[in-house]
Write a protein that binds this DNA or RNA. Structure first.
Lengths: 337, 337
DNA sequence: GTCAAATGTACCAGCGCTGTCAACAGAAAA
DNA sequence: TTTTCTGTTGACAGCGCTGGTACATTTGAC
């Protein structure tokens, strides 16, 4: 039978309440006493019972991660999860992962979810992070949440990275190689990622004095198939682009597939770069030039911040974690035009 | 304030204990009464408080998934997680994900983990599923567990698929295309996957009357780099193989990279096939012939079975879920030798 | 129709912890 | 010196649920 708080109290010669104070980091315990109690905790190998704690304190010690179902298999989500778990480690909090279908009325579904699991805090990933109704409902329910890469100002705590700047960086890289006819395949409508990455693309062109050519931008939806379709359209043009920048890596793979089918060499005939830095960018040949999105760090900080906001409900934070442009073999100087 | 069991009891005109019996599926409640109580539960939108339940019943309603840290980013783990979550859905159980470093002494670490989270059941993934000491410790602690693809007979509940047969299938495919000089890059020592996939490779050769050539088998460790290194060694031979079968997809990508660097065409100069059916097999060009491992189904069933074993501790199960050979463009008939 | 067995119900204690509130000591202010 | 305050500690109730026990009711066999 594991030790109980009562056993620790007896061992240290204090009341259970005082032990409880130490466990919960309450300030009004003398340092000497605190040390003695901590020693007793270690001596008895005591670990508080989460159920009892939760029941008495009306908390669940659960942080829920709400992500999009179709993304379930994505390494983006996986990396985020790794970060979330890392942040929970060493805290009494556990992570609950919850894939939510975008199609359904989230703001309604959330009530059921909250009733069942009673999470103390939520972390929202796009597209849910952009769902204004959902955030509003959470505010009504008075549940702390943080968002990842949200477009909405409404979110008090948001963690992301400077996607616009990162996109500009990678396009500038293409420009520095000598490319002038650079195409872009966008992300899915409604995602901030679509807007920011497109803006960055335009920023870089503007900075280099290259006129923005609308016909070089085609709509994608983050899928391999849409990347392939986009490449088809672009490569069928009379004056095909010499480089294609896609809003994520999967679409870049689609572009590479289309090039492969046409017998175009990468980077000889076409430079390709992606975005996100998913594992595939390293596995594919040639290696894909991309921006590594710091998913782990983002997931980790999203949890840390939202846990902090439980103690300090007024907390506001818009953190931007550093990213990294990864230059690989899929980009090179264009052949003479 | 959410409804309590007491409210449901009052609404249905019964005692709280009777409601509790309905909630926990106790048999001794008349069908008519059960129906009435279930109606009250729905009417009041009642959801039992997990903390209270856990405290009173000395349970945590937690299923822990123990996986290997370095695999954190792998889509194998991600898919498994998806299956695990799916199985928990609709049950009062939650999943706790726990990456464990292989290096450390697991059997010792597990005590700390169990003390902290008190999971009612565990699901073990290789390599932990092959750790005899760990399983023994869990037996001592009397904690139910299930394993995924374990080599050990010790495990009462194991879910996997017929890896040996699947490997044989894919090698037979290569043979049917006309390949005779087929190489294999193995998985990491200690994993059942290494042994079974190698055995399947040998089975297929034997069945086709092709002599086993030890020099065509090189050691790998499931990483991209080891696939590349293996390919280097194999392609430097005087009589290079016309096809390479690797024990997972990442290594197949390594082989493809090495072929790319040497200017070898796939599948023209070299056929490549992998194993696992990770997302990269579809994203890479040409598409990679592989075996789709039914990770989700495995994760799902591993949880379902272990939850069942909580009620029925004598339960034994060795399930083999169906797999699927996915033929893509990375394999074709060899050129005239 | 009777009796025993089987089935179903009510009540109460208590799971292990934290919140509330009261008590007390010592320091600062009057 | 007395009063007031702040900082520290403890006593006790009770969070919402389930297990056990004792009692009530139904069922089936004879």
């Amino acid at each position: 039978m594991p030790a109980r708080i009562e056993d620790v109290a007896a061992h240290a010669g204090v009341s259970t309440k005082t032990v409880s104070r130490v466990l919960n980091g309450h300030p009004s315990v003398r340092a000497t006493l605190r040390t003695r109690i901590e020693a007793s905790i270690r001596a008895l190998n005591y670990v508080p019972n989460p159920s009892a704690r939760g029941l008495a304190g009306n908390r669940s010690y659960l942080v829920a991660l709400l992500y999009d179902n179709p993304m379930a298999g994505s390494s983006y989500t996986m990396e985020l999860i790794v970060g979330v778990l890392q942040a929970c480690k060493g805290t009494p909090y556990n992570a609950v992962l919850h894939p939510f279908d975008t199609a359904d009325d989230l703001a309604a579904q959330i009530d059921g979810f909250v009733a069942t699991h009673r999470p103390d805090a939520l972390v929202l990933v796009p597209p849910h992070a952009n769902n204004a109704k959902l955030l509003q409902r959470l505010d009504e329910l008075d549940i702390r949440y943080s968002t990842v890469s949200s477009k909405l100002r409404q979110s008090r705590i948001d963690i992301g990275f400077d996607e616009r700047r990162a996109a500009a960086d990678i396009v500038e890289h293409l420009i520095s190689l000598g490319h002038r006819r650079i195409a872009h395949i966008t992300g899915l409508h409604g995602h901030g990622a679509r807007t920011w990455r497109l803006s960055g693309y335009r920023d870089a062109l503007r900075k280099a004095g290259i006129a923005y050519d609308e016909s070089l931008v085609v709509e994608g939806d983050f899928t391999f198939a849409s990347g392939m379709a986009g490449a088809k359209a672009l490569l069928d043009r009379r004056r095909a682009p010499t480089a294609i920048f896609t809003a994520n890596d999967d679409m870049a793979c689609g572009v590479m597939r289309e090039a492969y089918e046409r017998g175009l060499a990468i980077p000889g005939d076409l430079s390709v770069c992606g975005f996100d830095g998913t594992p595939v960018s390293q596995l594919i040949s040639p290696g894909l030039t991309t921006v590594r999105q710091p998913c782990r760090e983002i997931g980790c900080q999203a949890v840390e911040s939202v846990l902090q906001s439980i103690r300090d409900p007024a907390l506001r934070q818009q953190a931007r974690v550093p990213y990294e442009v990864q230059l690989r073999a899929s980009t090179a100087a264009p052949r003479k035009p």
